[in-house]
């Protein structure tokens, strides 16, 4: 904003608010607006970061210090000792959970993004009867919360004896109506028909056109879909809760929840839940930092077009 304002100094006599002689005219109102914006953002930042800070501090404490010391500041730093204990507990079942989460979320988001991308692309670029109907049905899918589908899915999977397997959580994770929606909107806006036509004239098949030409133009949307899907699967709790009984198949959310339901009677689990929760958000943070550049592009591009 300030780069656009003229550099001529304002007259010092003008207006009570321009106390600084050098303050440009157009900026006279901005310090207040700026400060209040900063305050609002600061409050929200605090609001979002304090729980994480609390978690970090709590995870670094030994059990005896957990209740007796300031919850927002460190006592003796035993974070690594706690991590060691967590990894050792029950032969490192926690690591297994993290690995499962990575498989469900990583694999599910990858395959789910490809499916959603192809589906959205097809809906955007091919004319066929029933196209709008299909799209509207998919849109309706956005409105149905995933939790509402968990129980019917369980009954269906029971019929084919697939409950309590890797697939019982993985297969439902591949579906992303929102992803289809986003991919369609983005594909129709950013992939020119002429380009597809040109690819066809050059002899490329439809699949090849999609993967070599269209996908490259859809990358920001696809990354967005991937991120959404990754976070949604990573945080999906209800489906694994209903489907899984074998501890070695649990994702980390369900595992921690199961432990947390025991803390009244097995107090040591509280430490593991805290430290486990802290570690479980690290992959999400990493993937956000890596992909946020694409995501931001994707969001703004989508909003303009």
């Amino acid at each position: 904003m300030s780069t656009l304002t003229p550099t001529t100094p304002a007259k010092p006599t003008r207006g009570i608010r321009s106390t600084e002689a050098k303050a440009p005219r157009a900026q006279r109102e901005s310090p207040f607006a700026r400060v209040s914006a900063m305050i609002v953002m600061g409050v929200f930042t605090l609001y979002f970061l304090v729980p994480i800070w609390w978690l970090l501090v709590a995870a670094s404490k030994s059990r005896s210090q957990f209740n007796s010391t300031n919850p927002l500041w460190f006592a003796d730093f035993s974070l690594f000792e706690n991590i060691g204990n967590l990894m050792a507990y029950r032969d490192g079942v926690y690591l297994k959970w993290m690995l499962n989460s990575a498989l469900y979320a990583g694999g599910g988001a990858l395959v789910g993004t490809i499916i959603a991308g192809m589906c959205g692309y097809a809906l955007a670029k091919y004319n066929f009867p029933g196209r709008e109907l299909i799209f509207n049905v998919v849109l309706g899918g956005v409105l149905v919360p995933a939790t509402a589908l968990a129980l019917p899915l369980f009954l269906i999977f029971s019929q084919i004896s697939l409950t309590n397997t890797f697939w019982s959580v993985f297969l439902p994770s591949l579906v992303s109506p929102f992803g289809v929606y986003l991919a369609r909107i983005y594909a129709s806006a950013s992939v020119p028909d002429e380009l597809i036509e040109a690819a066809r004239l050059d002899g490329a098949g439809e699949l090849r056109t999609f993967f070599t030409v269209s996908v490259r133009m859809m990358v920001p949307a696809l990354v967005t879909v991937f991120l959404f899907q990754f976070v949604a699967i990573w945080n999906n709790f209800f489906l694994p809760l209903i489907m899984l009984r074998d501890e070695t198949l649990f994702p980390v959310t369900l595992g921690l929840y199961a432990w947390n339901s025991q803390v009244n009677q097995i107090p040591v689990l509280r430490d593991y839940v805290l430290i486990g929760a802290l570690l479980s958000i690290i992959p999400l943070i990493i993937i956000f930092l890596l992909l946020q550049r694409f995501w931001r592009n994707g969001l703004s591009a989508g909003s303009v077009k």
């Binding site: 309590n164 809760l241 209903i242 899984l244 009984r245 074998d246 501890e247 369900l254 929840y257 199961a258 947390n260 339901s261 025991q262």
Partner: peptide, 9 residues
């Protein structure tokens, strides 16, 4: 097989 406590699910 395992899971959360009884009322927890």
């Amino acid at each position: 097989q395992t899971g959360p406590n009884g009322n927890g699910g």
